[in-house]
Structure formats: C-alpha cells, structure tokens
C-alpha cells in the first residue's frame, strides 16, 4: 500500500499526543517522588534536578505503610491460590462440556459478574461484622476471590480449549482418570495461560480499593488504602504520597506485557467462534 505522507503525519501526531496524555501524569509523579522539599514547590515548576531517595526511605520506615504493603502481597497471593483452586477444575470441566451447556454456563458466570461492585458493599460489611471478620485479611481474600473467579473461569476455559484433545484422549486411553488427565496433561500444557490469568488476578486484588476501605481498620489495611495517609491536607509535602504511588506501580509495570497478551484474547477469532455459535 502506498505510504503517503498524511498517514505518517497522522501516526506520529496521534501517538505523540497520546503518549503525552497517558504518561505525563505518571512521569510527573515519578519526578515528584525524587524531589527535595525545596524543589517541590519551586515556581515555575521543574522536573527533578537532584534526585533524592529520602521519600522512599521515609515510607519504607513507616510501620503502617510497610505492613500494609505486606498485607497487600499476602491478600493478593492468597486470592490467586483460592481463585485457582476453584477456577481451574471448573474451567477444565466447562471446556469439556457440549457447546450449548458450555455457552450457557459461561454466560451465567459473566452475568453474575455484571453488577457493579458497590451493590455488594453493604451486605458484605454486615455479614463480616456479624461473623467478626471485619479488619481481617480473610474477609478481603473472600471478596477478592468472588470478583476474580468469573474472570478466571472465562480466561482459563479459553486456554483449556487450546489444549489438543488428542493428547488428553491418548492419556485417557492409557488409563488416566479425568483428574490425572487434568493435572498431568492439561494443566502443564496450559501453563502459560494459567500464569497470565494469575497475573490478572494479582493486579485486580492489588488494586482493589472499595472493600479494603470499608472492611479494614488497621490490622488488615492494604497499601491501596494506606496510601491515602500520605495525602497532605494542606498542600505541602507530596513527596511521600508520590513515592508510595511509585512503589505501588512497580509490580504493575512489570506485568503490563502479560496483560496485553491476555486482554487481546477476547477479540480472537477463536473466542468469537465460541461465543456466537
């Protein structure tokens, strides 16, 4: 196809505009997190000139925030384990159902996830208050699992669909049980998809704010909520808040390439064929 000039100008201009829009707030936060207090409110504003790690050392030394970071890691990893324990067998099973039954179950799973998270906040709060689980990690893990299972079933069943049926059948003929076929054959083959799904679950749980805000007080507070403590009431020292934001973003930035891989999938031909037939 002819490479006309307008096409390239459009490509560069639009990419540049979106790069500025999408990345400048994050880069500004990174710059702020490294600023000395004197640079923070310099006028006109500047990008950091002499980077200093003082805000990072300050927030790591902050007992509340470092224990919140640990809570976040514990809650996110436990959510992955619990979600996988429920979703891998279910997705494997759904992937081996007849077409109509499979479609019906997947639609049900998706429909159960359609309601906005806010509708659950009152009943979960009352329930966990009743059973004395407010301000425990267990409550957060249960809630996060509830949100993660539909997503996990949806993606994992697509990955199990791609496992060649011939290999599974060969294992069955050799006398493997369904459970053995799943654990010894299908799971290892679908491994990369399972890891990608685990990463999505981690991000969802790491980012969760609403329930962490209402179901925790001190002990189980996660970093996504504890970060609010660093917002200054009177506009003075934003360095700590910025540094805490950057720390929260580290695992996210590492995982972005995986997100791209998995989020593209729903538009695949394979997926279309699965849902629309």
């Amino acid at each position: 196809m002819r490479r006309d000039l307008g096409r390239r100008i459009y490509g560069y201009l639009v990419s540049a505009a979106f790069a500025l829009f999408l990345f400048s707030p994050i880069l500004w936060t990174l710059s702020t997190s490294l600023k000395q207090p004197t640079e923070m409110f310099q006028w006109p504003p500047v990008i950091v000139r002499e980077p200093s790690a003082q805000h990072y050392t300050a927030i790591i030394a902050d007992k509340d925030f470092s224990s919140a970071l640990i809570n976040s890691i514990v809650v996110s990893c436990s959510t992955i384990i619990l979600t996988m324990a429920l979703s891998i067998p279910a997705a494997f099973g759904i992937s081996h159902l007849q077409k109509t039954a499979m479609r019906r179950l997947l639609t049900l799973v998706l429909a159960l996830r359609a309601a906005p998270a806010m509708i659950y906040i009152i009943p979960y709060f009352l329930f966990f208050r009743q059973v004395h689980l407010v301000d425990t990690k267990i409550a957060l893990i249960i809630v996060n699992t509830m949100f993660a299972v539909p997503l996990a079933i949806w993606y994992l069943s697509a990955f199990f669909d791609q496992v060649p049926r011939e290999i599974e059948e060969a294992a069955m003929i050799d006398g493997a049980s369904t459970l053995q076929t799943m654990t010894l054959i299908s799971i290892p083959i679908a491994k990369s998809g399972i890891i990608a799904t685990a990463i999505l679950i981690f991000i969802g749980s790491w980012n969760e704010f609403l329930f962490a805000l209402t179901l925790t007080r001190d002990d189980a507070k996660t970093a996504a909520v504890a970060i609010l403590n660093f917002i200054p009431f009177e506009g003075t020292d934003w360095g700590k808040a910025a540094a805490a934001c950057v720390l929260m973003l580290v695992p996210i930035v590492v995982f972005v390439p995986f997100v791209k891989k998995i989020r593209r999938r729903p538009n695949n031909d394979r997926f279309r064929e699965r849902v629309k037939r």
Binding site: P45, W206, N207, I252, V256
Partner: peptide, 29 residues
C-alpha cells in the same frame, strides 16, 4: 500504552491530583 488501565485507581487519583495542583503541578509545568 496499556499502563494507565492497570494503575490502581486510588494511585491514579493521587497521580492526577499531583498533576493538577494549581501553579506547581505537572499541568502547570
């Protein structure tokens, strides 16, 4: 370019608040 879509929403709020501080935020820069 996918980065903003996976930023924790609370972090996104702080990031934008910093960006929009009158006079000394990123937008003023």
């Amino acid at each position: 370019f996918l980065l903003p879509s996976v930023v924790p929403p609370a972090v996104g709020g702080i990031v934008w608040k910093l960006f929009l501080i009158p006079g000394v935020g990123g937008l003023s820069y």
